Amino acid sequence: MKTLKIIKIGGNIIDNDDALSSFIKDFSTIKGPKILVHGGGKLATKLATQMNIPVTMIEGRRITDSDTLDIITMVYAGKINKNIVAQLQANNCNSIGFSGADGNTIVSNKRPTEPIDYGFAGDVKQVNTETLDILLQHNITPVFCAITHDKNGQLLNTNADTIASELAIGFASIYKTELYYCFEKNGVLEDVNNDDSVIENINTESYQTLIKNGIIYEGMLPKLNNCFYAINHNVEKVCIGKSEMLFNTNTKHTTITK
């Protein structure tokens, strides 16, 4: 069974042209089938501010009203996604940009309005791998933005970490799937003020202890919940850290295991 790498990048790479260019150059050298998932960075917020559209965040998540959905569709599925695809082509990595609506690849339900109404936010219901697998078999790399659809004509804003996790789970029956979350830290840290305090391995048991002791909290909880959800649904390996971990095996990072 072949190994499929699913790699998610966030704003720390997307918001920095030099960092994005460097990452794409390295990403293009990764052998074998791979899928890239990207978040939105700060551009959607910047554009909304320029257009006098209010930006509302609750617990770090964007409230997506219809005007905001228009903006993030333009930014995520348009400018950012196509810029990444164009740069991949420049590095001889043939790729195609995707939202969940393209090829009916990711179907979501609109999130319930209780207890918080997040607007047009989507929770993934189904991943359809057939079209993507044809591309992977022809050495074409899918590049996903954080937009899905409900199969009734409605686009939905969907957490990029979740999209990466659900893709890894969806492919787990036909590939050995490895999931990599690239962000600005070296990994999950024992001391948030010390970049060298990387917890190199976390399993189900130690995770609960880390939460209980207050070492893992707030922003890291949703990310790690996605990690364990993936591991518990037959994903082979999940890693968290800086993107260098993909290209240098000696780079410190966190590996999640059962």
Score class of each variant (00 low, 15 high):
Val124Phe: 01
Asn250Gly: 02
Glu59Ala: 03
Ala44Cys: 11
Ile202His: 09
Leu246Cys: 14
Thr251Trp: 00
Thr209Tyr: 11
Ile147Leu: 14
Leu210Pro: 12
Ile174Gly: 01
Thr3Gln: 10
Cys182Ser: 14
Val85Glu: 00
Ile240Ala: 11
Phe171Lys: 06
Asp15Ala: 15
Ser243Phe: 05
Ala168Lys: 09
Ile63Leu: 10
Ser206Asn: 13
Ile96Met: 14
Asp70Gly: 05
Gly41Gln: 06
Thr64Ala: 10
Thr64Gln: 08
Gln50Arg: 15
Leu20Ser: 08
Asp67His: 08
Lys5Phe: 03
Asn92Tyr: 04
Tyr180Lys: 08
Pro115Glu: 10
Lys79Ala: 03
Tyr118Asp: 07
Ile35Lys: 11
Arg61Pro: 07
His149Val: 09
Leu155Lys: 14
Gln126Asp: 01
Asn201His: 12
Ile80Leu: 07
Phe183Ile: 00
Gln87Cys: 10
Met1Asp: 12
Gly11Glu: 09
Phe247Lys: 08
Glu190Gly: 07
Ile7His: 06
Phe144Tyr: 14
Val127Ile: 15
Ile199Cys: 06
Lys31Leu: 13
Ile63Ser: 08
His38Ile: 12
Ile84Arg: 04
Leu221Tyr: 14
Val198Ile: 07
Asp70Pro: 00
Val127Gly: 11
Ile7Cys: 05
Asn213Lys: 11
Asn201Ala: 07
Ile9Asn: 10
Gln208Ala: 06
Gly214Ala: 01
Thr29Pro: 08
